[in-house]
Nucleic acid binder design. Structure first.
Lengths: 139, 139
DNA sequence: CGAAGTGTTCTATCGTGATAGAACAGTAAA
DNA sequence: TTTACTGTTCTATCACGATAGAACACTTCG
């Protein structure tokens, strides 16, 4: 499935779920009309309490991103895509800003910040590649 | 004073204090032997509960960064500088990594991430300039 | 029908961060 | 000594995120 939880993220679990659903909608992984995993199913998959998933889905529903079909499940609304596409960068930018503000107020130079970002970007690329090419070396 | 609290930071107040003390030690703003503000004074200045400052100072003391002089106050230890210089990048890098991981898992391209970072960096530069040259334009 | 799956709602408990307020022991200076 | 600072240690309360377990109304399918 698309979802995963990172306990050291700094974000609450329910918030991580909310954001990942939004991101999945924004990039087309979760198209309108598609059903999200059921509360109990997702809770089991993430090894998380069902009530935590309930809270995430409740927030998403009250934002108009999900809608309930009684007795059946929750699906992505038609309006969700535009909404999530707009919000995607806003959410990421806001978090990024907090980190950069801390770096800046700690007297880190802009170039030091840039190289820190580059370090972590290549690290991300490497681990992504590592997952794609399971056994082989490269290619 | 050097310290300030950002409620929307995602970090607990006591943790923000801990990190800011470490950063101040790392960049020489808070040299060894220097006294940190008293518990009650800092609590008043940050409009925060004294117990919150106590917790931050207790953590810093148990890490060997501050030491108590009974009846007088807390001062920065001799070993603190090396310790904090090492930890500075680690702390910032760890937080940065979490944000970049989220951006990456949301299918944001590396170049989009870079331009997002650049956006926020110039924003930081602007606000820093704005604070330095209060009334005048530049110089 | 009945069983199994939906979402929804409820109470209770726990840990943590924060607040509030009080008390105690030590030091410094008038 | 007295006063006014230090740090330190309590108890109590609150909000919030998370957990646990149960119940209810609805739909789908055999």
């Amino acid at each position: 499935m698309f979802f995963s939880i990172n306990p050291t993220n700094g974000l609450a679990i329910f918030d991580q779920i909310v954001r990942q659903v939004k991101f999945a909608v924004a990039n087309g992984t979760l198209p309108p009309g598609e059903m999200v995993p059921s509360v109990r199913e997702l809770a089991k998959e993430l090894a998380v309490n069902p009530n935590t998933v309930v809270k995430a889905y409740r927030d998403l529903t009250s934002e108009g991103i999900l809608e309930a079909v009684r007795g059946t499940g929750l699906n992505v609304t038609k309006d969700a895509v535009a909404h999530c596409e707009k919000e995607r960068l806003v959410l990421l930018r806001e978090r990024m800003r907090h980190v950069l503000e801390e770096a800046h107020s700690s007297r880190l130079e802009a170039d030091e910040i840039r190289s820190l970002v580059e370090d972590e970007l290549v690290r991300l690329e490497r681990s992504a590649k590592g997952k794609r090419g399971k056994k082989g070396a490269d290619t």
